[in-house]
C-alpha cells in the first residue's frame, strides 16, 4: 500500500501542473487575444492568423496536462 502522504502530494502536484500552466497560458493569451480581436475588427482577413497566434500559448497548458497525466497514470500506479 502506497504512503497516503505521497499519493496526496502527487495528486496535488498533478493539480498544480494543470492549474498553473492554465494560468500562465491565460496570461500569455490575454495580450495576443486582445491584439487579434483588434486586428480582426479592422480586417476580417486576420481571423486565421489571429486564431493561430492566440492558441500558441495554449501549448503550455497542454504541457501541464501531460505532466499531470504522467503523474496520475504512470507515477501513481508504480508507487
Amino acid at each position: 500500500m502506497a504512503d497516503p502522504l505521497a499519493v496526496g502530494l502527487l495528486a496535488l502536484g498533478a493539480g498544480l501542473a494543470v492549474g498553473l500552466a492554465g494560468i500562465g497560458a491565460g496570461m500569455g493569451e490575454q495580450g495576443i487575444g486582445a491584439a487579434a480581436v483588434g486586428a480582426m475588427a479592422e480586417d476580417e482577413g486576420f481571423f486565421g492568423k489571429g486564431l493561430l497566434m492566440t492558441v500558441i500559448p495554449e501549448s503550455i497548458a497542454i504541457f501541464g496536462l501531460v505532466v499531470s497525466l504522467i503523474l496520475l497514470f504512470v507515477t501513481l500506479p508504480s508507487l
Binding site: 496570461m27 490575454q30 486582445a34 487579434a36 483588434g38 479592422e42 486576420f46
Partner: peptide
C-alpha cells in the same frame, strides 16, 4: 500592469491595421 498590456495590445493592433490602409 497586465491590464495595460491588454488595453494597448487591442488599440495598437487596430491602429497598425489602420496605418496599413
Amino acid at each position: 500592469g497586465r491590464s495595460k498590456i491588454k488595453d494597448y495590445a487591442y488599440i495598437t493592433a487596430r491602429v497598425r491595421a489602420k496605418k496599413k490602409k
